[in-house]
Design a protein around this nucleic acid. Structure first.
Length: 460
RNA sequence: GGCGCGAUAGCAAAGCGGUUAUGCACCGGAUUGCAAAUCCGUUCAGCCCGGUUCGACUCCGGGUCGCGCCUCCA
């Protein structure tokens, strides 16, 4: 039975879907005003893995990952770069799609954009006003009355009286309470706006997720995910809005993935210590990055550095090498034999709050067995289980010989010509010449492997 | 100040109250013309102090250190 760590209760719980046999999941995606960085990659990959495992478990999954395409930063960036908001967001959505595809992230079932849900947001705000939880302030903003919502803080474990609103940021004096947050911002000069019963304006930060999730998944659904930094205030506010408007429970299981860190500090936009996905993909194969993310547990911090990525690449090379050794070139999906012990261990690991590090360990044990027995059945298990994580989906040869995109690596034809030369030298027992060629290629990042079947090569 | 998380071998990272995690790196052996890959084997752990227990890396208490949230952030 699948167990999920629920941020709301701070414990692992059996996953019991609201509708038996199905799972509805909403994940907070990107705000599209810049390239995605590794932190975003982690969210994409982690919840892709979750979604895959839910499906592999036989559940009918509806996976929604939203796009926030209107907010302060987008407006600011559009002005700075002298382009329209639509142009800006379209560009970065396209970049995000490319990055996600490279990382082996399957497209979600729905990818709603905030700007397409303004009417639903206004409905929600109207409902909140009707329920006495929202009010329009003197400046025209519509705010949520945090103190009127019982249970505010239950997700983040905060008590209203302990929150120090305004300690680090100037308090909006139009609010009745400093902790209140904006549902609808009144229109300002040179900013996009929509008409509403409260005057022209645009949505506050949190309302879009409440609107999109209930529209696509219903008022009450199974799983809501996102980065740990969204737990407060974003998700806390989503709960307040959704439950305050619908007067029923919002989400059963809250999942939060840990941060990516650089030198033991959170990777973030504000600290400026982030690496974009496309920057990293210049030096590393996308599958290496995916593996790097998945070999750590999703709730643990993940330290980023080149040497960690190098390490991940070596490890993934071992897996692909094992596959190559049995000539398992066929990259087609392999059905998993779930009665087999490795598969059982794998399932047990994944069912335990998506323990991908343990699941990866199973993969390595399978690789060792494959190297020993050269059995196609073992290769099938390895390929099949890894495939559930979105790994080992390619022909080993392609992975092992792939050149990093930013390097002017020797062409395959050149390498093979040199190998032919060396084979000839070896035939003449001219080992000095053969070794020289091998050393030259090694210096160029190409490792040769001789076997009774001939010489093969891979990039180091 | 409030709340939360973590501390495992050289590095990364899991499970587990007693029995090999796993990967990278390292060392010895097999294999190889020599390598590489692979196999076999060895070495290397559990922040500190108490407690519970026949037995604790694993449970409990107290420290220390690190990180995060309380502001936009995935």
């Amino acid at each position: 039975m699948l167990k999920i760590y629920n941020s709301l209760t701070r414990e692992k719980q059996d996953f019991v879907p609201i509708i038996p046999g199905s799972a509805r999941m909403y994940v907070c995606g990107m705000t599209v005003y810049d390239y995605c960085h590794l932190g975003h990659a982690r969210v994409l990959v982690v919840f892709d893995m979750v979604q895959r495992w839910l499906r592999a478990s036989g559940l009918q999954v509806t996976y929604v990952r939203n796009i926030t395409d209107i907010d302060d930063k987008i407006i600011k960036r559009a002005v700075e770069s002298k382009q329209s908001i639509a142009e800006l967001t379209a560009r970065f959505i396209a970049f995000m799609d490319e990055d996600a595809a490279a990382l082996g992230v399957e497209p979600p079932d729905h990818e709603p954009r905030a700007t397409a849900y303004v009417p639903q947001m206004l409905d929600l705000i109207g409902q909140l006003e009707k329920n006495g939880l929202a009010y329009q302030a003197a400046d025209g903003d519509v705010n949520f009355s945090v103190r009127k919502f019982a249970g505010y803080g239950k997700l983040s474990g905060k008590s209203i009286d302990d929150l120090r609103a305004g300690e680090r940021v100037e308090v909006d004096t139009a609010k009745e309470d400093p902790l209140d947050f904006v549902l609808w911002k009144h229109a300002r000069d040179n900013e996009p706006f929509w008409p509403s019963p409260w005057g022209n304006g645009r949505p506050g930060w949190h309302i879009e997720c409440s609107a999109m999730s209930s529209d696509l998944l219903g008022k009450h659904f199974d799983i809501h995910g996102g980065g740990q930094d969204l737990q407060f205030p974003h998700h806390e506010n989503e709960i307040a809005q959704s439950e305050g408007a619908h007067l029923c429970r919002f989400v059963n299981y809250w999942m939060h993935n840990g941060f990516v860190r650089v030198a033991d500090e959170k990777m973030s936009k504000s600290l400026g210590n982030f690496f974009t996905i496309r920057e990293i993909l210049k030096n590393y194969d996308a599958e290496v990055v995916r593996f790097f993310i998945l070999r750590a547990h999703y709730r643990s911090p993940l330290n980023y550095s080149d040497s960690h990525l190098d390490d991940a690449r070596q490890a993934l090379t071992r897996l692909y090498t094992a596959l190559k050794s049995v000539g398992a070139a066929d990259a087609g999906a392999s059905p998993v034999d779930w009665d087999e012990p490795h598969a059982q261990r794998f399932r047990q690991a994944m069912d335990d709050d998506f323990n991908t590090p343990e699941a990866c360990a199973v993969l390595f044990d399978l690789a060792a067995e494959l190297n020993r027995r050269k059995s196609p059945a073992v290769a099938g298990q390895l390929r099949g289980l890894a495939g559930l994580l979105g790994l080992l989906t390619r022909d080993p040869q392609i992975f092992l010989q792939a050149a990093p995109s930013n390097e002017t690596a020797d062409s395959v034809a050149d390498i093979e010509a040199r190998i032919a030369e060396r084979v000839a030298a070896k035939k003449n027992k001219d080992y000095a010449a053969a070794d020289r060629i091998r050393a030259d290629l090694l210096a160029a990042g190409v490792v040769l492997e001789d076997s009774s079947a001939g010489t093969t090569w891979r990039r180091s």
